[in-house]
């Protein structure tokens, strides 16, 4: 018990004094997860919207696949990305294994289906509501997508935040493809795992507090967004 209390006190000291390691790891975490978020959103938001308004032959199968991909265990994603990027793998020549880029790739694969799926559901609802009006006004396909994305922007932001939340807290995949290398690929979650293993609770707890703060921030943002949506404040 004493050890934990001492750990918490030390953790606060690290945070208040902006400990160099803590700051570096936090920034890298943000860099990796935000990059993954931007890339995943660029793929998932238009794709989810397109899936909601376009009728094509394998639509149901595509949606089922998307939902299945959402449930992929991150560790397995890590394993697959590892195999792809390892020296003997198809992309081995790029030398990406154990770099932040590899971690970004893994996180993109993990959160893209999640963001696309939430986007698809929200956009399908909005499309059902707007369908007759947009057809009636003789809108072009581009105008329709633009209108849906604009009027659904809060929901889309919520989808993106959910993706970010999943990415920043994810440990299995990035541990495998990043290797948790000090000053190179060490991020919040992998560092916590390592420090806990070593018994250095101060740093582990300090990093844990930062991670919790980020997760709470994301959830508050989602909550605030859904409230402005419900109350219709513009």
């Amino acid at each position: 018990m004493n050890e934990i209390w001492a750990g918490i006190q030390a953790a606060f000291r690290l945070i208040v004094t902006l400990d160099a390691d803590l700051v570096e790891i936090t920034l890298r975490s943000l860099q990796v997860s935000l990059s993954a978020l931007v890339i995943a959103s660029l793929i998932a938001l238009p794709f989810g919207t397109w899936l909601a308004i376009r009728r094509f032959r394998y639509r149901r199968a595509t949606i089922a696949t998307l939902n299945a991909l959402m449930g992929l265990p991150p560790v397995v994603v890590g394993l697959i990305v590892y195999l792809m990027l390892s020296r003997s793998g198809p992309f081995g020549v790029l030398g990406l294994l154990f770099t932040p880029t590899a971690m970004i790739i893994a996180q993109v694969i993990i959160i893209t289906p999640l963001i696309a799926s939430i986007t698809h559901q929200a956009m399908r609802e909005l499309w059902a509501e707007y369908h007759d009006l947009l057809i009636s006004l003789n809108t072009s396909k581009r105008q329709r997508i633009a209108t849906l994305i604009w009027d659904g922007r809060r929901t889309l932001l919520t989808a993106a935040l959910a993706g970010f939340g999943r990415a920043i807290g994810e440990v299995g995949a990035i541990m495998i493809v990043g290797g948790n290398i000090d000053h190179a690929t060490r991020v919040l979650t992998t560092a916590i795992a390592l420090e806990t293993g070593k018994g250095d609770f101060a740093l582990a707890l300090g990093l844990g507090f930062v991670l919790i703060a980020l997760a709470l921030l994301v959830n508050f943002a989602i909550h605030a967004l859904s409230r402005t949506e419900r109350e219709g404040t513009w």
Binding site: L126, E129, Y130, D132, L133, S136, N138, T147, D151, G232, W234
Partner: peptide, 16 residues
């Protein structure tokens, strides 16, 4: 198409 307008039985409001 361009010269017509329609007011639906249950009005469709854009969320704006």
């Amino acid at each position: 198409r361009q010269m017509q307008a329609y007011v639906f039985q249950s009005p469709i409001m854009l969320r704006r």
